[in-house]
Amino acid sequence: MNKFDVKDLNLYYGENHALKGINLPIPERKVTALIGPSGCGKSTLLRTLNRMNDLIENVKITGNVSLDGDDIYQERNVGGLRMKVGMVFQKPNPFPMSIYENVAYGLRAQGIRDKKIIDEAVENALRGAALWDEVSDRLDGHAFGLSGGQQQRLCIARAIAIQPEVILMDEPTSALDPIATHKIEELMEELRKDYTIVIVTHSMNQAKRISDKTAVFWMGELVEHGETAQIFNSPQDERTKGYVNGDFG
Protein backbone atom coordinates (compact mmCIF):
# COMPACT_ATOMS: atom_id res chain seq x y z
CA MET A 1 0.00 0.00 0.00
CA ASN A 2 1.46 3.34 -1.01
CA LYS A 3 1.14 6.29 1.33
CA PHE A 4 2.37 8.83 -1.19
CA ASP A 5 2.36 8.65 -4.95
CA VAL A 6 4.50 11.19 -6.73
CA LYS A 7 3.67 11.39 -10.44
CA ASP A 8 5.49 13.37 -13.17
CA LEU A 9 6.51 15.96 -10.63
CA ASN A 10 8.39 19.00 -11.89
CA LEU A 11 9.43 21.85 -9.66
CA TYR A 12 10.97 25.17 -10.64
CA TYR A 13 12.57 27.79 -8.43
CA GLY A 14 12.12 30.68 -10.84
CA GLU A 15 14.19 29.59 -13.86
CA ASN A 16 15.91 26.76 -12.05
CA HIS A 17 14.41 23.36 -12.90
CA ALA A 18 14.99 21.67 -9.53
CA LEU A 19 12.96 18.47 -9.89
CA LYS A 20 12.61 16.79 -13.26
CA GLY A 21 9.74 14.43 -13.89
CA ILE A 22 9.85 12.53 -10.61
CA ASN A 23 7.81 9.33 -10.28
CA LEU A 24 8.11 7.74 -6.87
CA PRO A 25 5.80 5.60 -4.77
CA ILE A 26 6.36 5.86 -1.00
CA PRO A 27 5.07 2.79 0.87
CA GLU A 28 3.12 2.97 4.11
CA ARG A 29 4.84 2.18 7.44
CA LYS A 30 8.23 1.83 5.86
CA VAL A 31 11.30 4.00 6.02
CA THR A 32 12.14 5.53 2.67
CA ALA A 33 15.54 7.17 2.36
CA LEU A 34 16.24 9.89 -0.22
CA ILE A 35 19.94 10.06 -1.03
CA GLY A 36 22.19 11.80 -3.51
CA PRO A 37 24.85 14.50 -3.72
CA SER A 38 24.21 18.06 -2.46
CA GLY A 39 21.80 20.06 -4.57
CA CYS A 40 20.30 16.96 -6.22
CA GLY A 41 16.76 17.84 -5.18
CA LYS A 42 16.20 15.33 -2.37
CA SER A 43 15.32 17.98 0.25
CA THR A 44 13.17 19.80 -2.29
CA LEU A 45 11.20 16.63 -2.94
CA LEU A 46 10.78 16.06 0.80
CA ARG A 47 9.37 19.55 1.14
CA THR A 48 6.81 19.00 -1.60
CA LEU A 49 5.29 16.22 0.52
CA ASN A 50 3.96 18.63 3.17
CA ARG A 51 3.92 21.69 0.93
CA MET A 52 6.67 23.47 2.84
CA ASN A 53 7.77 24.87 -0.52
CA ASP A 54 4.65 27.05 -0.37
CA LEU A 55 6.63 29.31 1.96
CA ILE A 56 9.14 30.14 -0.79
CA GLU A 57 8.48 32.75 -3.47
CA ASN A 58 8.45 31.87 -7.17
CA VAL A 59 8.03 28.13 -6.85
CA LYS A 60 6.13 26.46 -9.68
CA ILE A 61 4.99 22.88 -9.53
CA THR A 62 3.50 20.60 -12.21
CA GLY A 63 2.44 16.98 -11.95
CA ASN A 64 0.90 15.62 -8.81
CA VAL A 65 1.57 14.28 -5.34
CA SER A 66 -1.15 12.24 -3.74
CA LEU A 67 -1.53 11.19 -0.14
CA ASP A 68 -3.84 8.16 0.28
CA GLY A 69 -5.04 8.81 -3.24
CA ASP A 70 -5.92 12.50 -2.83
CA ASP A 71 -3.87 15.13 -4.64
CA ILE A 72 -2.37 17.29 -1.88
CA TYR A 73 -1.98 20.26 -4.22
CA GLN A 74 -5.75 20.35 -4.74
CA GLU A 75 -6.16 20.48 -0.98
CA ARG A 76 -7.25 23.86 0.39
CA ASN A 77 -6.46 23.07 4.00
CA VAL A 78 -2.66 23.08 4.06
CA GLY A 79 -2.67 23.16 7.88
CA GLY A 80 -4.66 19.92 7.90
CA LEU A 81 -2.16 18.32 5.52
CA ARG A 82 0.75 19.31 7.74
CA MET A 83 -0.99 17.85 10.79
CA LYS A 84 -1.02 14.52 8.95
CA VAL A 85 2.49 14.93 7.57
CA GLY A 86 4.84 16.05 10.35
CA MET A 87 8.36 17.29 9.80
CA VAL A 88 11.70 17.20 11.62
CA PHE A 89 14.33 19.62 10.40
CA GLN A 90 18.05 19.47 9.85
CA LYS A 91 18.94 21.65 12.79
CA PRO A 92 16.95 21.11 15.97
CA ASN A 93 14.52 24.03 16.07
CA PRO A 94 12.59 23.95 19.35
CA PHE A 95 10.54 27.08 20.02
CA PRO A 96 11.85 29.51 22.66
CA MET A 97 9.53 28.21 25.37
CA SER A 98 9.35 25.41 27.92
CA ILE A 99 9.75 21.73 27.06
CA TYR A 100 6.08 21.15 27.88
CA GLU A 101 4.87 24.05 25.73
CA ASN A 102 6.99 22.88 22.81
CA VAL A 103 5.28 19.51 22.75
CA ALA A 104 1.85 21.01 23.44
CA TYR A 105 2.27 23.56 20.63
CA GLY A 106 0.69 21.58 17.82
CA LEU A 107 -2.29 20.59 19.97
CA ARG A 108 -2.90 24.16 21.09
CA ALA A 109 -2.62 25.30 17.48
CA GLN A 110 -5.57 23.00 16.74
CA GLY A 111 -7.55 24.74 19.46
CA ILE A 112 -7.31 21.95 22.04
CA ARG A 113 -7.59 23.50 25.50
CA ASP A 114 -8.34 20.57 27.82
CA LYS A 115 -5.37 20.34 30.17
CA LYS A 116 -5.90 16.64 30.79
CA ILE A 117 -5.79 15.78 27.10
CA ILE A 118 -2.71 17.94 26.58
CA ASP A 119 -0.90 16.55 29.65
CA GLU A 120 -1.49 13.04 28.42
CA ALA A 121 -0.45 13.79 24.85
CA VAL A 122 2.72 15.52 26.05
CA GLU A 123 3.72 12.55 28.18
CA ASN A 124 2.96 10.04 25.42
CA ALA A 125 4.85 12.06 22.84
CA LEU A 126 7.89 12.46 25.09
CA ARG A 127 7.83 8.73 25.83
CA GLY A 128 7.45 8.02 22.13
CA ALA A 129 10.50 10.15 21.43
CA ALA A 130 12.50 8.39 24.20
CA LEU A 131 12.93 11.67 26.05
CA TRP A 132 10.49 11.29 28.95
CA ASP A 133 12.95 9.77 31.43
CA GLU A 134 15.41 12.59 30.85
CA VAL A 135 13.00 15.52 31.16
CA SER A 136 9.99 14.38 33.21
CA ASP A 137 11.23 16.31 36.25
CA ARG A 138 11.77 19.56 34.38
CA LEU A 139 8.95 19.92 31.88
CA ASP A 140 8.71 23.63 32.72
CA GLY A 141 12.40 24.11 32.00
CA HIS A 142 13.39 26.01 28.89
CA ALA A 143 13.87 23.89 25.78
CA PHE A 144 17.18 25.62 25.04
CA GLY A 145 18.59 24.06 28.19
CA LEU A 146 18.61 20.64 26.47
CA SER A 147 21.54 19.22 24.52
CA GLY A 148 21.44 19.17 20.73
CA GLY A 149 20.40 15.53 20.59
CA GLN A 150 17.73 16.04 23.24
CA GLN A 151 16.46 19.08 21.34
CA GLN A 152 16.12 16.99 18.19
CA ARG A 153 14.20 14.30 20.10
CA LEU A 154 12.03 17.10 21.51
CA CYS A 155 11.30 18.17 17.93
CA ILE A 156 10.34 14.58 17.14
CA ALA A 157 8.10 14.52 20.24
CA ARG A 158 6.56 17.80 19.08
CA ALA A 159 5.84 16.24 15.69
CA ILE A 160 4.33 13.00 17.01
CA ALA A 161 2.24 14.76 19.68
CA ILE A 162 -0.37 15.60 17.07
CA GLN A 163 -0.43 11.97 15.85
CA PRO A 164 0.57 12.41 12.24
CA GLU A 165 0.57 9.55 9.75
CA VAL A 166 3.85 10.46 8.13
CA ILE A 167 7.07 11.93 9.52
CA LEU A 168 9.41 13.72 7.13
CA MET A 169 12.99 14.02 8.32
CA ASP A 170 15.40 16.40 6.64
CA GLU A 171 18.88 15.19 7.59
CA PRO A 172 17.78 14.94 11.21
CA THR A 173 21.17 13.84 12.55
CA SER A 174 23.56 15.94 10.49
CA ALA A 175 23.97 18.49 13.31
CA LEU A 176 24.41 15.82 16.01
CA ASP A 177 27.31 13.85 17.45
CA PRO A 178 27.54 10.04 16.88
CA ILE A 179 25.97 9.10 20.23
CA ALA A 180 22.99 11.42 19.73
CA THR A 181 22.73 10.14 16.16
CA HIS A 182 22.63 6.57 17.40
CA LYS A 183 19.79 7.43 19.79
CA ILE A 184 17.76 9.04 17.02
CA GLU A 185 18.30 5.99 14.79
CA GLU A 186 17.18 3.70 17.58
CA LEU A 187 14.12 5.86 17.99
CA MET A 188 13.37 5.56 14.28
CA GLU A 189 13.36 1.77 14.68
CA GLU A 190 10.45 2.25 17.08
CA LEU A 191 8.68 4.92 15.05
CA ARG A 192 8.63 2.86 11.84
CA LYS A 193 6.06 0.54 13.43
CA ASP A 194 3.46 3.31 13.58
CA TYR A 195 4.48 5.88 11.02
CA THR A 196 5.49 6.20 7.43
CA ILE A 197 8.93 7.80 7.50
CA VAL A 198 10.68 9.63 4.69
CA ILE A 199 14.23 10.67 5.49
CA VAL A 200 16.75 12.72 3.57
CA THR A 201 20.26 11.73 4.51
CA HIS A 202 23.79 12.49 3.46
CA SER A 203 25.08 9.39 5.14
CA MET A 204 24.90 6.28 3.02
CA ASN A 205 25.59 4.17 6.09
CA GLN A 206 22.59 5.71 7.77
CA ALA A 207 20.41 4.95 4.75
CA LYS A 208 21.70 1.36 4.78
CA ARG A 209 21.09 0.96 8.51
CA ILE A 210 17.60 2.37 8.83
CA SER A 211 15.72 2.35 5.54
CA ASP A 212 13.60 -0.22 3.76
CA LYS A 213 13.50 1.65 0.48
CA THR A 214 16.02 3.99 -1.05
CA ALA A 215 15.65 6.55 -3.82
CA VAL A 216 18.76 7.99 -5.46
CA PHE A 217 18.68 11.53 -6.87
CA TRP A 218 21.03 13.13 -9.34
CA MET A 219 20.79 16.76 -10.46
CA GLY A 220 17.04 16.95 -10.04
CA GLU A 221 16.35 13.53 -11.49
CA LEU A 222 15.33 10.36 -9.74
CA VAL A 223 17.97 7.93 -10.97
CA GLU A 224 16.84 4.76 -9.33
CA HIS A 225 14.68 3.54 -6.49
CA GLY A 226 13.88 0.24 -4.85
CA GLU A 227 14.70 -1.99 -1.91
CA THR A 228 17.61 -0.54 0.04
CA ALA A 229 19.60 -3.77 -0.12
CA GLN A 230 19.20 -3.96 -3.87
CA ILE A 231 20.24 -0.30 -4.37
CA PHE A 232 23.40 -0.77 -2.36
CA ASN A 233 24.32 -4.29 -3.45
CA SER A 234 23.39 -4.33 -7.10
CA PRO A 235 22.69 -0.83 -8.39
CA GLN A 236 21.44 -0.73 -11.98
CA ASP A 237 22.52 2.77 -12.89
CA GLU A 238 26.16 3.82 -13.33
CA ARG A 239 25.58 7.00 -11.34
CA THR A 240 24.11 5.09 -8.42
CA LYS A 241 27.05 2.70 -8.56
CA GLY A 242 29.51 5.57 -8.40
CA TYR A 243 27.62 7.34 -5.62
CA VAL A 244 27.11 4.35 -3.31
CA ASN A 245 30.70 3.25 -3.82
CA GLY A 246 31.79 6.69 -2.67
CA ASP A 247 33.42 7.66 -5.98
CA PHE A 248 31.80 11.11 -5.71
CA GLY A 249 29.09 13.00 -3.83
Binding site: L55, G86, F95, A109
Partner: peptide
Protein backbone atom coordinates in the same frame (compact mmCIF):
# COMPACT_ATOMS: atom_id res chain seq x y z
CA UNK B 1 13.21 36.01 14.14
CA UNK B 2 14.82 32.81 12.75
CA UNK B 3 13.13 31.19 9.75
CA UNK B 4 13.49 27.89 11.64
CA UNK B 5 10.81 28.97 14.15
CA UNK B 6 8.37 29.78 11.36
CA UNK B 7 9.08 26.49 9.61
CA UNK B 8 8.69 24.58 12.86
CA UNK B 9 5.33 26.17 13.49
CA UNK B 10 3.95 25.82 9.96
CA UNK B 11 5.29 22.26 9.91
CA UNK B 12 2.95 21.46 12.79
CA UNK B 13 -0.01 22.73 10.80
CA UNK B 14 -0.29 26.00 12.74
CA UNK B 15 -1.94 28.90 10.96
Amino acid sequence: VPLAYREGSYGLGAS
